[in-house]
Computed example of a mutant assay.
Amino acid sequence: MSVITSKTKGVFVIAVTPFRHDGTIDPGSIDSMVDFYFEKGADGLTILGMMGEAPKLTLAESLAVARLTLARASGKPVIVGVSAPGLAALGELSGKVMDMGAAGIMVAPPATLRTDEQIINYYRHVIDTVGAETPVVLQDFPLSTGVQISTKTLGVLFTAHPSIVMLKHEDWPGLQKISDIRRAEAQGQRPVSILCGNAGVFLPEEMQRGADGAMTGFAYPEMMVDVVRLMNAGRVEEAHDVFDAYLPLIRYEQQPGLGLAVRKYLLAKRGAISCAAQRRPGIMLSEPAVNEIERLVARQDRRLTFPA
């Protein structure tokens, strides 16, 4: 079983959950989606995240998605989002997916947390619940959760809990947080892996600040793969050239509320999934939106040149 560590690097794509038109899970599209992501160069996957419509799934469905994904991944690392309102549900899902062979779990703080003390106590309870042997990704996404975690509090958590091996960095603006964490590590704080989200909107800058890669969803995962590869090779201008070619689509996919519909439409268009349906409630793309996406794709195809 491949597990994540504080040295994990690369691109872990946040996977969508494929549904049929009737809202049922589509096992065939899970297989094709997993193949698609790895064929485009992903180092691993993260499933049942916020853009994976996890809150719309039953426990049985979450386990089915995890089982199908892990089977298709054939030993490549798969992180499973287990965030839940209560620790009992979080612990049950965590234990079952780790037994299936998950590489680790991802936990976002519940929106009820307001103080540093509450955040510290919450993650202590999480580690007590899932066991100190379970690798944990701490998802820091205040724009969604409403929970502000300071760099100082992150340092307290990393020091107290060695099983928190990775930060999913999605603070915005948050580039300084990456710099501050790396500075603290240079001064003796335990190192952690930092993979960044927000659809890769700041990926080149995040890599320059010391991030280890990306953990986010975008319908063109090869963009993230190429940017990370080129930045690691010191080919900064080429990395920015690749990023710039995709930027109009990244921007369009970042629309609050509409982004998942855009992503699923493009993944279906690219053959990764058979159907762009979301489980209800979900936003459908209008005809003008589809026309705008198609125009952006056509313009992107004319601009793209990939470095060797």
Rank of each mutant, 00 (worst) to 15 (best):
residue 1 M to W: 04
residue 7 K to F: 15
residue 8 T to L: 05
residue 13 V to M: 04
residue 14 I to N: 02
residue 19 F to K: 00
residue 23 G to L: 08
residue 30 I to L: 12
residue 35 D to M: 08
residue 40 K to D: 14
residue 49 G to A: 01
residue 51 M to Y: 10
residue 51 M to V: 04
residue 58 T to F: 09
residue 59 L to M: 14
residue 62 S to D: 09
residue 65 V to R: 06
residue 65 V to F: 02
residue 76 K to S: 04
residue 88 A to D: 13
residue 90 L to C: 03
residue 93 L to F: 08
residue 99 D to S: 15
residue 101 G to V: 11
residue 111 A to C: 14
residue 113 L to N: 05
residue 119 I to P: 03
residue 122 Y to S: 00
residue 127 I to M: 02
residue 127 I to N: 02
residue 136 V to T: 05
residue 147 V to E: 01
residue 151 T to H: 11
residue 152 K to T: 10
residue 154 L to N: 03
residue 157 L to G: 14
residue 162 P to Q: 14
residue 164 I to A: 06
residue 170 E to T: 02
residue 172 W to S: 11
residue 175 L to Q: 10
residue 180 D to H: 12
residue 192 V to N: 01
residue 195 L to T: 03
residue 208 Q to W: 09
residue 232 N to R: 11
residue 233 A to N: 05
residue 234 G to M: 06
residue 237 E to L: 14
residue 242 V to E: 03
residue 250 I to V: 03
residue 254 Q to E: 08
residue 255 Q to R: 11
residue 256 P to W: 07
residue 263 R to T: 11
residue 263 R to G: 07
residue 266 L to W: 00
residue 273 I to W: 04
residue 276 A to F: 07
residue 276 A to R: 07
residue 285 L to S: 11
residue 291 N to M: 11
residue 295 R to E: 12
residue 296 L to F: 04
residue 296 L to G: 00
